[in-house]
């Protein structure tokens, strides 16, 4: 690696400068939990921009009606943060099932997004939460994308030349919100998902409002299962409806066979996890009725 092949800027402007004229194949190094595996294996990149010292990527606050999460925020910080738990329980649940404490302390929200893994747990939660991702560059200023606009395929994103993920904005959960995350076991964490499902919806006046269901490891990208959402939208949650939504979800995913599981099993897991999530929603509704809240 040449002199300019490694840059460790002190602030965002420095990082954007380093990216602005970066050769193709340049990689941003944040926590290193993914990139270091490649570096250890002998892979080399024309330039590495280490953003560990860029404080502008460290925001974690409620701001302007959203939870603002800096790209450099680690999974461990998400887990320790009461605002995350209150306003984006789904993100917290995904973080809790993320790798291991040793990885959570370094892995970042931005890294999870731009790695663009089909099995990325945080990305899945962010997709279900309708989060917006803010990209910045020296030339182009700021632009904002939905998660499904950012993540285009395994390892492939819409990040343009010189662009960096700065923040993720997650709409605050309303009091009527229900969040649920399911991931294949048996390990509680430290597991690449065979399949995972993230569900965010609201139940208002007994009806499902704005359901968003995202499925992981069952398509080239974390996938919203829109037909299943359509089954639910505006309807009353019943066992029959749950069944219908679960089957709709399983039908629309596009899993593959790999060393971890077959496509057929992944499809079955999607059905099981959607069913479990929605059943939990139904149960939570019963509980809230019973307690009169």
């Amino acid at each position: 690696m040449t002199e300019q092949g490694y840059v460790r800027p002190d602030n965002l402007a420095g990082a954007l400068d380093a990216l602005a004229d970066a050769p193709e194949g340049t990689r941003v190094l944040a926590g290193g939990t993914d990139l270091m595996v490649h570096l250890r294996a002998g892979k080399r990149f024309p330039r590495l921009v280490n953003v560990a010292r860029v404080s502008e990527l460290q925001a974690l606050r409620v701001w302007g009606g959203a939870l603002e999460v800096g790209a450099g925020v680690t999974v461990a910080r998400l887990l320790r943060d009461a605002e995350v738990r209150r306003h984006a329980a789904l993100l917290w649940q995904a973080a809790d099932r993320f790798a291991s404490p040793l990885v959570r302390s370094r892995a970042t929200v931005g890294g999870n997004l731009v790695n663009a893994s089909p099995a990325a747990d945080l990305t899945l939660a962010l997709l279900a939460l309708d989060a917006r991702v803010e990209l910045v560059s020296r030339a182009g200023g700021v632009r904002s994308l939905g998660v499904d606009e950012l993540v285009l395929g395994p390892g492939k994103t819409a990040l343009g030349a010189g662009e960096l993920v700065r923040t993720v904005r997650v709409p605050l959960a309303k009091p009527t919100a229900f969040h649920h995350f399911e991931k294949s076991g048996p390990r509680p964490a430290l597991e690449i998902s065979v399949a995972a499902v993230a569900v965010a919806l609201r139940i208002e006046d007994g009806r499902v409002v704005e359901p968003r269901i995202a499925c992981g490891a069952v398509a080239p990208v974390p996938l919203r299962v829109v037909p299943a959402e359509q089954v639910l939208a505006g309807r009353e949650l019943t066992p029959a409806l749950i069944e219908e939504a679960a089957l709709a979800a399983a039908k629309v995913v596009r899993p593959i066979d790999d060393v971890r599981a077959t496509a057929l099993y992944r499809r079955r897991l999607v059905a099981a996890f959607v069913r479990r999530s929605l059943t939990a929603a139904l149960d939570s509704q019963r509980v809230s009725h019973a307690t009169g809240s």
């Binding site: 290193g32 939990t33 270091m36 291991s100 040793l102 370094r106």
Partner: peptide, 24 residues
């Protein structure tokens, strides 16, 4: 990063020695 045998404490947080850049 799958076994934890290299774990060290960085500012009190447990991190993987094998995947944490020394410069950090």
């Amino acid at each position: 990063g799958e076994c934890g045998a290299c774990a060290v404490l960085l500012d009190g947080e447990p991190v993987l020695g094998c995947l944490t850049p020394a410069v950090d």
